[in-house]
Design a protein around this nucleic acid. Structure first.
Length: 574
RNA sequence: GGGCCCGUAGCUCAAUUGGUCAGAGCAGACCGCUCAUAACGGUUUGGUUGGGGGUUCAAGUCCCUCCGGGCCUACCA
């Protein structure tokens, strides 16, 4: 039994997440956690809302609420939606928690002691009308290069030229539209990542099994230009974690907060502490997952995220943890494997919150149960490259895989049995060559399935699972109990007994992808406590003769063409 | 501009890291079955692996080049 720590990239607080966000980290993390738990490993799955930063403040303002109140509400909304998608987080925390305040300040203090913090005087644009400093991209103006009037302070979307806010002609606040802007000096803390470049590079070089996406992005940042750049870890904002060295004030940094990207990854750890608190477990309980000197030396830590998160998880966060351990006193657990995925697109374009384009988590659950989405998203996860959500593809995948191959199998077996033998497992006959062949086939496929999960290959695992469902239909077709029943009811009984056991087996194997349907299958078979089939032959004899079962409602209904067209129109966006 | 990834059957993707006639699923065609959600099973059509050149006994896989997509390039997260 291994100990596996799993974190999902933190969903940002400013609204309901779309299917792309879901499949980018939370859903794969959940499926992986479910599989590993099913195999008997000790698993801890951690996620949280990422609550700091300018967009959170603006979203709160737009909603007409104090930011703390807004975040608290949105946290509950996201938590409920996660539950709706059956995301089995051991804890879904908040980056604004007291634990994270304490830990973030502690780590900053340690980095200071390590000599890895530098104070830098910056010049930033301040908006008098908005009463705040504006991040580059919140300043709009005319592009000096192409004349586009809505260029942003970081880059012109029209001509793609990279800009400084001060390059813009007629600059104005993107928030209020005010042109009452001025450049002010403000002091910030920089994490001197450049000092850790060698150490980070050496560490990355050991990660030969990571997706190219992850290592290539990390190496690019390490080696590009003058190498890894030092990075500001503070901001002039109200909402956030106040800048402190541990519990002490940080002279000259009053009124400032840590940058959201500094405190968000630390929340992985803090959320684990929150988990311990909620469960009344004490510090040792979470430290054994994160501190190599306190029990975490045998933990395998796997992170899930979309590609935009990779630099922070391969460089900034490890730099923070390594720096914090400058004297060897705090050996924090570093990530062992990063599952980085690409983007999910919507009908060939981008999901867009502002234009209402694409399907968001709340809408998805209004339309169909979570299993439909989980199956399609995971079996089409954007692993190798971006993948595209289309209603036609979704309809096809769900109807064929879930309704026809799996759902119909369960239906045909249980209904046939009920009509010929009643609602209990038939007694007669014995398994023979046909059943042995299926057992051999499934045993081999189960090994492949397990190997895909070990490698975190979602699409391949899904394909193998589907192949195992197909084996059931092939078996029924060749064994044809409906014909055998007429001449040899005993033998037909054995076939049906085997098929009922297949349903139970599928219930166990399918759970990482479609937990609700799995529960329905196991419930119908009266086998809720079924464990992983280490021995397929034994697993397919688990339901004994005379064991009662129920014919479940159809596991999945099909998406009609009319329904598909209606949804396509509804979510096409403005 | 610089860097990275990708281009395989009508569609979505594989291919044990250079090694049998390049494989699946969907879609199409034909056949079978009738237990089942008009579901299932079988057979089958379909590819000069984006173009060109090179290395090698051997290239989808390595090198060069061209074409066509996508992504990243750091103070929004």
């Amino acid at each position: 039994m291994a100990r596996i720590l799993i974190t999902s990239a933190l969903p940002y607080i400013n609204g309901v997440k779309h299917l792309g966000n879901l499949v980018g980290s939370m859903l794969p993390a959940d499926a992986y956690a479910r599989y590993m738990r099913a195999r008997g490993h000790e698993v801890l799955l951690i996620c949280a809302t990422d609550e700091h930063g300018t967009p959170a403040e603006l979203a709160a303002a737009a909603a007409g609420k104090p930011v703390a109140e807004y975040c608290a509400e949105m946290h509950e909304v996201q938590k409920a939606l996660g539950a709706g998608f059956r995301l089995s987080f051991d804890h879904f925390g908040r980056s604004s928690s007291a634990r994270n305040h304490e830990l973030t300040q502690h780590m900053a203090g340690r980095l200071y002691e390590a000599g890895l913090i530098e104070e830098v005087m910056e010049r930033q644009v301040y908006s008098n009308a908005d009463g705040r400093f504006l991040p580059d991209r919140y300043i709009e103006g005319t592009c000096p290069n192409c004349g586009y009037e809505r260029a942003r302070g970081d880059q012109c979307e029209n001509c793609t030229k990279q800009l400084e806010p001060t390059d813009l002609i007629n600059p104005r606040s993107a928030i209020s539209g005010s042109s009452d802007l001025e450049v002010r000096e403000t002091k910030h803390l920089y994490l001197m990542q450049s000092k850790m470049r060698g150490k980070l590079a050496e560490w990355i070089d050991t990660k030969i099994d990571w997706p190219v996406l992850a290592t290539s992005i990390a190496k690019k940042w390490l080696n590009d230009g003058e190498g890894l750049q030092d990075r500001s870890i503070t901001r002039d904002l109200d909402w956030g974690i106040p800048v402190k060295r541990g519990a002490s004030v940080w002279p000259g940094m009053e009124g400032k907060v840590f940058y959201v990207w500094f405190d968000a990854p630390i929340e992985y750890i803090a959320a684990t502490a929150e988990w311990a608190d909620v469960n009344g477990l004490g510090d040792a309980a979470w430290e054994r997952w994160w501190r190599e000197d306190r029990g975490a030396e045998d933990v395998r830590y796997v992170e899930f995220m979309a590609k935009d998160n990779i630099p922070f998880h391969t460089l900034s966060f490890p730099a923070t943890l390594m720096g914090t351990n400058f004297d060897g006193a705090e050996p924090w657990k570093l990530v062992d494997f990063i599952k980085g995925v690409n983007w999910l697109t919507y009908e060939g374009g981008k999901f867009s919150t502002s234009q209402g384009r694409g399907v968001f988590m709340d809408q998805a659950l209004e339309i169909l149960p979570s299993d439909y989405w989980r199956w399609w998203l995971l079996s089409n996860a954007p692993e190798g490259s971006d993948s595209d959500f289309t209603w036609e593809g979704f309809q096809g995948g769900v109807n064929k895989d879930l309704a026809d191959v799996l759902g119909n199998f369960v239906s045909r077996v249980t209904k046939f049995c009920r009509s010929k033998f009643g609602e209990e497992v038939p007694a007669g006959g014995a398994y023979g060559a046909a059943e042995e062949a299926v057992i051999a086939d499934l045993s081999a496929r189960l090994k492949v399935y397990a190997a895909h999960w070990e490698a975190v290959e979602l699409r391949k695992a899904a394909a193998e699972l589907r192949a195992m469902w197909v084996v059931g239909n092939e078996y029924l077709q060749s064994a044809e109990p409906w014909a055998v029943f007429k001449t040899d009811p005993e033998r037909a009984g054995a076939i049906v007994r085997f098929a009922l056991n297949l349903i139970r087996l599928y219930g166990v194997l399918s759970a990482p992808f479609i937990p609700d349907a799995s529960e329905a299958m196991l419930g119908a078979m009266g086998a809720e406590d079924a464990g992983w089939p280490e021995d397929v032959a034994a697993a397919l004899s688990a339901l004994p003769a005379g064991h009662g079962f129920k014919v479940p409602d159809n596991l999945f209904s099909k998406i009609t063409d009319d329904a598909r067209e209606e949804m396509a129109a509804r979510f096409a966006g403005a």
